[in-house]
């Protein structure tokens, strides 16, 4: 079998003084082309795990290999759609989308060469193609992010990450601020883009239903006790496509592992 694209090996992370464990011994292997949804209660370290894969943070112990190599800073193999501040506020929609290719092909002085302007025209055409694909109008191209609604901003952020064709795309609660209708739309868009581009997706969400609809695999992080760090409480392969009638039972199972305190019924009231 081929080597997994992402290998997370007994990763341990703690913050604060005295250190409080956030992730304690995470082991995860992710195959190329899979769509992994990361579930877990708030504060269990999902964003932290994404930051580790990005390379903007390093684990206290353990290591993370991408394609067999450790990476100590973010680079263009891993695209990122953060939950907030996803777009550059000082650039128009079009410039936000073309930022990636522009900056990776031309250095600071590269803008002075005529080749830059030729290439930029091509990139703009390509950006318009993406713009149509994410369902924005051409007239939106010259708007600034603050003039767009939250859903439109998320779409642009996805297009911005996708135009660079990263091998891995990390999305952190990308849809949590959207209403359910827009959310559905965005889910099918992401699913479709994932199928057509073949990127490996690591998708953080709070929403179990969303995780089951989107992913080929659902990984749940949970703490066994409040003072311990999170571990992988469940690693579930989702049949593709997930049968509608399976969803309730799967949801039930996932809910039980991700909120052990509530499910276990060990909550006692002090009088």
């Amino acid at each position: 079998m081929a080597m997994p694209l992402i290998q997370i090996e007994s990763v341990f992370v703690a913050y604060g003084n005295p250190p409080r464990a956030v992730l304690a011994g995470i082991d995860l292997e992710i195959e190329e082309g899979s769509f992994v949804c990361l579930l877990g209660q708030t504060g269990c370290g999902k964003s932290t795990l994404l930051r580790l894969v990005l390379g903007s943070e390093r684990p206290l112990r353990g290591r993370i290999l991408i394609d067999g190599r450790e990476h100590h800073q973010p680079d263009s193999t891993r695209g990122y759609v953060p939950q907030r501040y996803a777009l550059f506020p000082d650039r128009t929609v079009l410039d936000n989308i073309t930022f990636g290719p522009e900056v990776s092909e031309f250095g600071l002085a590269g803008r002075l060469r005529p080749a830059f302007y030729r290439r930029r025209k091509e990139l703009r055409d390509e950006a318009f193609h993406y713009l149509r694909r994410i369902g924005l109008r051409e007239s939106d191209a010259s708007k600034y992010p603050h003039q767009l609604s939250g859903g439109m901003q998320q779409r642009v952020a996805i297009a911005q990450a996708l135009i660079n064709r990263p091998r891995i795309l990390l999305m952190d609660e990308a849809f949590s601020a959207l209403d359910s209708g827009t959310r559905r739309e965005m889910q099918s868009l992401v699913r479709e883009l994932w199928k057509s581009t073949g990127t490996t997706l690591l998708f953080v969400t709070h929403n179990i239903d969303e995780a089951l609809r989107l992913g080929t695999r659902v990984v749940v992080l949970a703490r066994e006790a409040p003072e311990l760090g999170s571990r992988i409480a469940m690693d579930l392969a989702v049949p593709d496509p997930c049968a509608q009638e399976d969803i309730p039972s799967l949801m039930d199972r996932l809910e039980r592992v991700s909120c052990p305190a509530e499910a276990g019924g060990t909550v006692t009231l002090s009088v």
């Binding site: 990122y80 907030r84 501040y85 996803a86 290719p101 250095g107 600071l108």
Partner: peptide, 18 residues
């Protein structure tokens, strides 16, 4: 400036001075 912006620029292929 939010850290996300910097990380994101790196993931889009920018260098330190970009």
């Amino acid at each position: 400036v939010p850290g996300e912006q910097v990380v994101k620029a790196f993931t889009l292929g920018a260098g330190d001075f970009d």
